[in-house]
C-alpha cells in the first residue's frame, strides 16, 4: 500500500505533475486552433511530446467548453459520431493572453537558472 510521496521517485512524479498541469491546458488550447476530436487531439499532443491521459484530457475539454473557450460539434466520421472541438473566439483571446504570460514566466526562469 502506498501512503504518499515518501520515495524520491514519487516526489519527483508529484512535482512533475504540478509543473505540467498548467502547461497542458496551454497545449490543448493551442492545438485546437484547428478542429480535432479527442482521440486525434491526444495523438497530436503525444507526437509533440505532450503525453496526456484520456482521463485528464476529456474532463479538461469539457471544462474548457463550459467556460466558453472551446466550441464542439457532433459529426459522423468513420461510421461513428465523434465530437469535434475547436477554439472559440474567446478561447483565441484567452490563448493569446496565456501565451504572453507563459513567455514571461519562461524568460524569468531562464534568467534565474542561468544568470
Amino acid at each position: 500500500m502506498r501512503l504518499g510521496a515518501g520515495v524520491d521517485g514519487d516526489l519527483y512524479e508529484s512535482l512533475r505533475m504540478e509543473l505540467r498541469r498548467g502547461s497542458l491546458t496551454l497545449g490543448v488550447l493551442a492545438r485546437l486552433r484547428e478542429e480535432r476530436y479527442g482521440y486525434t487531439l491526444r495523438q497530436a499532443l503525444a507526437a509533440d511530446g505532450l503525453e496526456m491521459e484520456e482521463s485528464t484530457l476529456y474532463p479538461l475539454l469539457r471544462r474548457l467548453e463550459a467556460q466558453g473557450l472551446l466550441v464542439s460539434e457532433w459529426r459522423e466520421e468513420e461510421k461513428r459520431k465523434k465530437r469535434f472541438y475547436r477554439l472559440s473566439p474567446a478561447g483565441e483571446a484567452m490563448l493569446a493572453r496565456l501565451l504572453d504570460e507563459w513567455r514571461r514566466i519562461s524568460a524569468s526562469l531562464e534568467k534565474i537558472i542561468e544568470p
Partner: peptide, 13 residues
C-alpha cells in the same frame, strides 16, 4: 453527452 463521447474514446482505443 458524456457517455457518447466516452464510448467513442473507448472504441477508438
Amino acid at each position: 453527452d458524456i457517455v457518447a463521447e466516452l464510448r467513442d474514446t473507448i472504441l477508438s482505443r
